[in-house]
Design a binder for these strands. Sequence first.
DNA 1: TCGGAAATGATCGACGTATATCAAAAAATG
DNA 2: CATTTTTTGATATACGTCGATCATTTCCGA
Lengths: 353, 353
Amino acid sequence: MSGPTLSDVAEAAGVSYATADRVINKRGNVAQKSIDKVRDAVERLGYVRNVAAANLSRRRVYRLAFLIPTGSNAFFSRVRDHIIQSADHLSADSISVRIVDVSAFSVEGLKDSIVDLAGSELDGVAIVGLQSRLLEQPLAELRARGVAVIGLVSDLPVEFRSAYIGIDNKVAGRTAARMTGLAHRGRAGAIQTFVGSMEARDHAERLQGFRDVIAADFPDLTVLDPILTKDDPAVLCKSAANALQSGASVTAFYNVGAGNVGLIEAISTSPGARPFCVVHELVAHSKQALIDNHIDLVIDQRPDVEVNRAFALLRALIDDRELPPMPDLMPTIYVRDNLPADTLNDAMEVQIR
Amino acid sequence: MSGPTLSDVAEAAGVSYATADRVINKRGNVAQKSIDKVRDAVERLGYVRNVAAANLSRRRVYRLAFLIPTGSNAFFSRVRDHIIQSADHLSADSISVRIVDVSAFSVEGLKDSIVDLAGSELDGVAIVGLQSRLLEQPLAELRARGVAVIGLVSDLPVEFRSAYIGIDNKVAGRTAARMTGLAHRGRAGAIQTFVGSMEARDHAERLQGFRDVIAADFPDLTVLDPILTKDDPAVLCKSAANALQSGASVTAFYNVGAGNVGLIEAISTSPGARPFCVVHELVAHSKQALIDNHIDLVIDQRPDVEVNRAFALLRALIDDRELPPMPDLMPTIYVRDNLPADTLNDAMEVQIR
DNA sequence: TCGGAAATGATCGACGTATATCAAAAAATG
DNA sequence: CATTTTTTGATATACGTCGATCATTTCCGA
């Protein structure tokens, strides 16, 4: 019923268990001839290592780390909460997780944190990355020590990680544009966009995707040049208020970055009809704003799904197994009617505990 | 590092390993006093039984079954494909899966299939259910034999299953309404709705949710009485073509049920502007229709996520463990820009193999 | 208080793998 | 051919749990 064991393989290969083991676990001191025989038998019998038994035997503990930016950013506290919550349940599978706080969006800070990882024994790490050559050296060293490295939410230099988990931000921007276009349905309009920083790759990509779709499919709409916010709610509040007062010319808002508290503040205190409004990431205040009808749509990247996926992926990489099939990561559209019940209530409880 | 073992528990409780084992595995013939001591020690030490070791020892194979309606329904072939694909990778975890074809939407057929399950040894089963008292008896018998039973996509009688995995169809209908409303933005309009059958609970609920939101938040829109289609593409094609010709009065289509091939056919062959168009379930043709701009939105219930969740849930139930945290199941909105790359290409390959 | 029933303890051999040791065989070296 | 080196085989112990068996102790009722 359950597949062949290593003993079966050894027998089929005509070698001893010890030799088969030497081949499987790459212990060296094996003749090429024997290696071939074992490999062949593995193939023929369809042998797959019983990971559970192996881990039991070697008392394996998967030591994982997550490098997450600090700060008040609500999205990353959501990520953090999901990691903690998952880790809680994964400890039963002998997985230990450490969350490392990284100073937000500082290449130097991230580099230091990666270098620091060298101190502790690790099997795998998921990093909210940045694109910088500065990171290449420390990442290479990590991987040389056998640590599985993946990028999370924001990618690392491609050659220096095994995989990336996150949405395609161009797709996210395109989706926002599609919805904005549909909401205008033929009518002309002007869309005020906001970005945190054009240096942030995700912001730039979202804006690009947004512009592409509007240009291609909604010729009656104009995309106004983005206002630079540095993700600061105060800046957003002020500039949004400004735009709201400057007559009825603006028919939609699209905030590519964070700091939505400010945008919502401006909208909720401004009288009269408001523009169609799209923002990113479902967190406590954006959820509330949907419910209160202050905004129309939230494009979300489901950090819960991403974290789940990170764990599965790291384990597979560490065990050198095939990847299990995993649901695709697509930007998810929320309106006030398909809100998850517990996005932040539950997560917050975890945080408080 | 890794938690206490049962030996530790026995020692802490001041009983022998054998007694602790008797308590943990409910073998009976244990004094209440001993039970309490062991339970107490488990609590104190935070013992969790090592499922991997246990399964290794007893050569456990999780024997699961899925009862899925047959027929040409594209949604269920998608479900089927995901089950097959997952099962492929789960065989490494000694999980064996059987898919049982059930004649679609026939209570009698479903009942027979459930009764038939009694023949084979099973640990858990996920059933695309129906609401009928006829099912209660056979379900009760299944569960009496220790089989974990969950409802999938469409629920079973509540008292006779351990859990239900599926979306809230009222929420799905509300979401469709919200998007339709946004797309009209102030303009008046009339929405032609289509249902397969008002007896189908999911259809009725979607329509209800849809009506609720339109009535509450979009007073300028009228929901026309639904056209009964029996999910038959031919019926949909004809009635949609009819609606399209009867002047510009209809500004939107909402198909609650299946048979979208027909709807798309009518739209694509009709000249001039088309109404705003929302359907359910992302499958090959609805995806293509999005790309071709024949429809605007697809509300999807992510069968891949649901199947994943079903596996996790069944295992947890069978092992009598706590549930791992799982992403919420919310209706997902697809437009032509956030389409998953592989929804059906990959799945179809699996089918062909 | 005796006998039988109930409860407990002690211990063993699986499960499939990892890791180690030691001896034996085969191959390479001069 | 003798000697070293490389490669192999045989075997043991451990991981944490399950499912046994068998002997011993404790409990309870008559």
